[in-house]
Design a protein around this nucleic acid. Structure first.
Lengths: 233, 233
DNA sequence: TAAAAAATAATGTGATCACATTTTGAATAA
DNA sequence: TTATTCAAAATGTGATCACATTATTTTTTA
């Protein structure tokens, strides 16, 4: 056993994409759903072995992830899942709120009723995932829900940046959710859908802000202390 | 001669960084200052030969750049500098305005007088660059000026996203500046500095908005038609 | 002359290897 | 026991090669 034995979530069997893309998708998913904890070192050979591919495509995948700030390259050239700090967390939540509200505003004029139907379907699936206590599925669906809205604007350029923020929040959420019993209060999605139906921009912004707050923004300093530790800088 | 003979800007001689980092820095710089035009295909071997390195580090650098949306990977797996469209351009400028204003607001409380002195020095250098008609130096300094402000907040997480936007606008600027004679009206930087001195958030926002507008946001549809072409979608 | 087909070249991809550096673990000394 | 030294293992990095796919050029055919 070379190094860290990461239990990477099994992904759909490799299709006709490149190996590099496959490695990227698996890592991306693992980070997004919080399978890899902050601070965990990520080695090229270790991952290559775990995925049964050669180091080369893994390296490329890691470079892409580090460019999205989902991984951080240390001075020793070692790659780790970035450690979360109280300050960085607040910055991430603040930026997520700002960009997603912006993206929603930009997307609203392009949203059709048919699209809203799709969002409602996703939301229904999320309700099921909540019942099943399936955190992983919930995270993926939540992402799909938000992405769907913002991507209604086909010339959207903010989507990759929102994704980057989610990627940075992902590893932290796993730890957070171990301490905070509850999860996304999906009701907010209903508010979002209502606002979309009514083309009510103010209500939409308010609902998105509330949704983000419910998901990640409500952690006060005490809660963060328990997760991150009071001494961490 | 294998393929495209890109005249990459000479960068500081390689220090103690990795070859991959070196390749990334050169490409990054070339894109940022508009040395590579939109639509230009970028081949791994071509760049490797041009930089006198092996394909491997170039590939990694290209992956990083494509993750920052500075390059786009086509279905044929070929890598090109993304073509600009009218709609994407407007989205980029709009997002740049939103994020930079946000970042400035978040940074303002952390800006010291000593920092402002630094900004003034950079601005003075920019005046010289304008006199010298040195567009490349001007772009680099302008970037440094903005980065300096936003990075005053050490926990800033928006900087990579701003960089990504600049990277996407970079190749387009070269073409734009061939048709539009003038460049950044550096006066706006004076307004920014004044606002920083006075801790005037409203004035700061206004100045940044104006600066961005002067730099990239003033192109109306007619001007864009000349650059992009009226039929491009 | 123009279109189609074949051959040639170029390109992305992934695996492997060698090398330098770093980390880890064991052995030794205080 | 604790600190130090040294050997072994692990790791990142970059170059090279083989292969499949895609582009391009040349040749052939209508």
């Amino acid at each position: 056993m070379a190094t860290s034995t990461l239990t990477l979530p099994e992904l759909d069997k490799r299709k006709k994409t490149t190996t590099q893309e496959y490695a990227y998708a698996r890592l991306h998913h693992a980070l997004m759903v919080g399978s890899i904890a902050p601070g965990v070192p990520v080695t090229i050979r270790g991952l290559a072995e775990a995925m049964d591919v050669s180091p080369t495509p893994v390296r490329e995948a890691l470079r892409r992830l580090s460019s999205k700030n989902a991984l951080s390259v240390l001075e020793n050239r070692r790659i780790v899942v970035p450690q979360m700090t109280r300050e960085r967390f607040h910055e991430l939540v603040s930026l997520r709120t700002a960009i997603e509200i912006y993206a929603a505003e930009r997307a609203l004029p392009f949203i059709s009723e048919a699209m809203i139907d799709e969002f409602e379907k996703i939301d229904a699936e999320m309700d099921i995932a909540v019942d099943q206590q399936n955190r992983e599925k919930l995270i993926v669906l939540n992402q799909k829900f938000h992405n769907g809205i913002y991507s209604a604007n086909k010339n959207q350029v903010s989507m990759p940046m929102i994704e980057s923020i989610w990627l940075q929040l992902g590893p932290f959420m796993r730890i957070a959710l171990q301490h905070i019993g509850t999860f996304y209060t999906v009701d907010r999605h209903k508010e979002i859908i209502t606002a979309l139906h009514q083309r009510d921009l103010a209500a939409l912004k308010k609902a998105i802000r509330a949704d983000i707050h419910d998901a990640v923004g409500r952690f006060d300093d005490d809660a963060l202390n328990k997760i991150i530790g009071p001494e961490m800088n």
